[in-house]
Amino acid sequence: MSSSSVTVVEERILQYGRKEKLSWWGKTKNFRTAMLYLFPSILLFSIFLFYPMLRTVYLSFFLTDAQGVASLFVGFENFAYILQSSVFRKSMVSTLLFVLYTVPSSVIIALFLALLANEKLRGIGFFRTILSSTMGMSVAASAVIWLFLFHPTVGILNSFLNIIGISSIPWLLDPQWALISIAITTVWMNTGFAFLVILGGLQNIDQHLYENAEIDGAKYRYQLRRITLPMLSPTLFFIITITFINSFQSFGQVDILTQGGPAEATNLIVYAIYRDAFINYQFGTASAQALILFILVFGLTILQFKFGEKRVHYQ
């Protein structure tokens, strides 16, 4: 703001200004008011997010007793231990597979549904409501319903398959199918939210672009490729990141459908942390895994900011 030579403005102030000297107290007035408004948030974030995050880092370097008190410093041994542990490696593989199953399918299905629901047709409001309904479904309720649908004896999914001539699938009993089953449940749950966000993105696109394309005689598919998808890219990028992060954090469906089994096939990372910490009281190794989860989510969010930021300008 200030330059080395005296500017016209400074000169004028010297001539006609009676610049009131503001005390330190007066100068920081805005800061103090702002802090008053921000205090609740900052306090809560500190206690329940920043402090525990640091504590997690701290704990991950220690062996702990059952009360979670750090008892023995072990350095990176917890990390070494979990990285060598076959249970953890299996858990990582399952988690990555699970992410691979859920993210693309959730987004593609939601995009498809949103494109359908973006048409201006009679009764479209009703369809939008139905298609967004899974957003209101809790993990527990969804998981319990799907537990029933997957059930080996009373589950109706297998009945359907039998009707169309496919033999029953051992949904939750077979290690490979179990992960897929959980993925199906998750995709179903994700759809509502992703649908709603993408639909919002579609509705933000300027209608004139389409009208103009219609006049030019562009076909639907061409409009989709040249207008809809490019204009929607920030929204899509956002929802992909969110779905990624949510997938990494899946817990309830595992707890209700499989408890991590069979044969540890569905022991997703948050469930593994939960088991280590709250069933086996291994707070040290659990914290080390929590740290790995943090790094994954952190990286994804940074990615979202980096790319998302650039593309949002587009709108």
Binding site: S2, V9, E10, R12
Partner: peptide, 11 residues
């Protein structure tokens, strides 16, 4: 002599 400057350079 009322003056206003936003950028400290011009009025």
């Amino acid at each position: 002599h009322v003056s206003k400057s936003y950028d400290q350079q011009s009025f």
